[in-house]
Simulated assay, not measured.
Amino acid sequence: MKYTREVKTGILAIIAIAILIFGYSFLKGKNLLDSSRNFHAIYADVEGLSPSSAVTINGLKVGQITSIDFLDKTGLLLVTFTVDSDFQFSKNSLAQIYGGGLIGGKSLAIVPDYENKLMAKSGDTLPSDIEEGIMELVNERLTPLQVKVERVIVSADSLLTSFNQVLNPETRNNLQSTFNDLAETVRSFKGTANSLNNIVEGNSAKLDRTFTNLDEMSGNFNKFSDTLAQVDLSGMSRDLEKIIADFEQVSNNLSSGKGTAGKLLTDDKVYDNLDRATKQMEQLLQDIKLNPKRYVHFSVFGKSPGSYQPPKDSLK
């Protein structure tokens, strides 16, 4: 069977038109041969979401955005997207815009919800949400930091201004003089340190002997401590307690009038007798001094002793 040229031309034209329609629909994100389910979501701002953007469920691509149009005169946007997977989710599942990195664009994720048993059907409108992207997070974190940096810059500028006002020519000269004096002091300390080093080097032998003597003294102290450790301190303590007890007994005897010393301290008669005996002894010694010939007489020619002189009672 032969086709005429007109028939062939018509068939080619029909095929070309079909390809054109199919290609145009494909470029717009529609697949005419696909039986995917269509869903809708309403947003106040799609934040860079565009047709042909991916639609994912748990990170797996299950469809794409087919169109984004104004819903009404209020500026709300109607986003239409397809889901080519048989994965079932409820009508309360969330259509969430996410992504928006430095390179990649926005995408739409379906967050399944299973509390509602009523499954979503093609043509349903799902609840919408927008997840903060990396740029929004960066702006959110950088805004407080920017405020703090601005405050620091203002404080630093005020500090530098005050510093410049303080560091007038006179103050700088004073600081220069201070640093010069400090350098001179450091040089003096350095000279003193050198002198001390020379003294130490010149007397190193004496220092060695001194440390040797200190070492020997330490050894002697150790020996002395060992000797003290061997002393019977407990016995000495017992002897000392015994001596103290004896002294205490003697003191008690004296206080109670026992013995001659006790009677002397407590009995007035003993004291008076002793006082009289002392007076008489003194008178006797005075009489011996005044009249020695009465007690000792040596005479070769028989001369009689002189006249008697009574002793003076000086103790009255």
Results as ranks from 00 to 15, higher is better:
280 Q>C: 01
163 F>S: 12
210 T>Y: 12
210 T>I: 11
202 G>R: 13
172 R>T: 07
195 S>A: 10
184 E>N: 11
183 A>W: 01
174 N>E: 11
279 K>D: 06
197 N>M: 02
245 A>P: 01
265 L>E: 05
194 N>M: 05
295 Y>M: 06
298 F>N: 08
294 R>I: 04
223 K>Q: 13
263 K>V: 03
187 R>V: 09
268 D>H: 06
206 K>Y: 05
295 Y>I: 05
213 N>Q: 14
291 N>C: 05
269 K>C: 02
230 Q>L: 08
195 S>V: 03
257 G>C: 04
175 L>F: 14
243 I>M: 09
203 N>M: 04
230 Q>T: 14
224 F>P: 00
282 E>P: 00
280 Q>M: 11
293 K>D: 15
246 D>I: 11
270 V>Q: 02
207 L>Q: 08
289 K>F: 09
270 V>F: 07
215 D>R: 12
194 N>A: 14
163 F>Q: 05
234 S>C: 00
278 T>R: 10
207 L>T: 07
204 S>K: 09
299 S>L: 03
237 S>W: 02
267 D>P: 02
195 S>G: 04
198 N>T: 13
195 S>M: 02
216 E>F: 03
214 L>H: 03
175 L>S: 02
292 P>M: 06
199 I>A: 11
283 Q>N: 08
260 T>R: 04
179 F>N: 09
190 K>E: 14
245 A>I: 00
222 N>W: 01
248 E>C: 01
258 K>V: 14
212 T>E: 13
263 K>E: 12
185 T>H: 05
201 E>F: 05
252 N>I: 04
